[in-house]
Amino acid sequence: MDSEATPTATLQAENLGSRQRPPGVWRQSWYRFRRNRAGMLGLTLVSLVVLIAIFCPLLAPFDPSDQSAMLRGAARRAPDSIHLLGTDRNGYDVLSRMLYGARTALAVGLGAMAIASLIGVTIGGIAGYAGGMTDELLMRFAEFFMVIPVFIVILAVVRLFGIVVVGTWLENIPNLNLITIIVLLGCFEWPPIARMARAEFLRLKHAEFVEAAVCIGSRKRDILLRHILPNALPSLIVLVALGIGGAILAETMVSFLGFGDPKAVSWGQSLFFNYEALKVAPWAVLTPGTAIFLTVLGFNLLADGLTDAFNPRLRQ
């Protein structure tokens, strides 16, 4: 779009007279991002989820484990002035469970993508920088994970792992089931990141500033981590944003099928518990469902906006 060039041009004009440094790539990207309405909507949605996750104890009218409505015979009650979004079949307050679910969702999304980024950048970075046979082997390995039915395999592993841990010290770890899901998602969702990291490391390996760093005798570690990696970050961040949404959705689906963490307050868990009562208490299903939808939409829009902000040329 024609508006893309304007902010940068204005900035450069402003800076002509002064000795200020021109805005860096991050600042420039932010100026472009701010203009992107869809991206800003995404950022707003994501910020909202983060704020809810931080302040849910203040926002939630009930404790997420409060089942007292059940004792009062008020389970599956339609929304009213006490329970703003009604109660579910277990007597939980739907609104409170939804608010606390943001914590689990973010923990899953961030945790899984932290693991995936670590694996992906390491493997992709080595493949791109080393090249040759190493590259070939590592990328075939990545492709393997891209083609296998990841979701199906995760379901089986979660179920079987649940049996393996019975009677071992692992059993005492709180929320072990949730942690298993996070680790598994991380271990299976890294290939797109590895592919991107490989492409970026391959491209930057021959960049002038990297060759300059090689010439002045920088250590390999510094070249990789301080020169190449920061320049590869913009492309990687887009994938991480997309991946967070994807991981949250995956956890929801695992939980919805009944393989989630029964002790966790998660949206998927709420769906699982309440789906059978859909006809009687649709609010208990629609509330967590909407929360998932808005969160995933938020991360998708954010990623979309970031792509445009980091690569303005792609848009034309």
Partner: peptide
């Protein structure tokens, strides 16, 4: 298309059933 792409399939299914 963006909304449809982000709408989890099962949620759409639930809405259709309702």
């Amino acid at each position: 298309a963006m909304v449809g792409h982000s709408l989890p399939g099962f949620l759409l299914g639930i809405l259709l059933i309702l």
